[in-house]
Amino acid sequence: MVRLTRVQQQARTRAAVLAAAREEFAEHGFVPAKVDRIAERAELTRGAVYSNFPSKRALYLAVLIDLVEKAAQEEATVSPDSPADALGVFARVWLERLPLVGDSAPGGRLQLRSLDGVFEDGHGPAVLAQVARLEALLLAIALEGGAPVRRVRVAELVLTVLDGAGHRAETAPGFGDPFDVAHACRHLAGIDLGDVWAPPHLPYVAPALVCADAWTAPRGLVDRISGEPVDLANGLVVVLGANRLGAAEEAVRAARPGEQVVVVVVSGDREEIGRLVRLRVADAVGCLRKVFAAEAWQHVRVVLDDGELVASALGVTDIGDETESAVSVRDGVIVARAHGRGAGHAAGARRREATS
Rank of each mutant, 00 (worst) to 15 (best):
N234V: 10
A58Q: 03
Y50D: 07
D223G: 08
V302N: 03
G122P: 05
P80A: 03
T77M: 10
T13H: 10
A105C: 04
F175M: 11
P80H: 01
V49T: 09
E69T: 13
V316R: 09
G146P: 06
R6N: 10
A71M: 01
H28D: 00
W197P: 10
A212F: 06
P83G: 01
V327M: 00
R341W: 12
V210E: 07
R168V: 12
A214K: 14
A182T: 12
A33S: 14
T216C: 01
G164L: 05
G340W: 02
A313W: 02
E69P: 05
L67Q: 15
E272H: 07
G348K: 00
A126M: 13
A206Y: 09
A294F: 13
P80I: 04
R92A: 06
L137G: 12
L112I: 02
F292E: 05
E324W: 03
L115E: 04
R289E: 00
V35E: 04
D321R: 08
A58M: 02
L61P: 06
G340Y: 04
S312R: 15
A349Q: 12
V310E: 03
V237I: 14
F175G: 00
T160S: 15
H339N: 13
D116L: 12
D192E: 11
H28F: 12
A296H: 08
R224V: 00
E156L: 15
V196Q: 11
G124D: 07
A343Q: 02
A284C: 15
F25S: 04
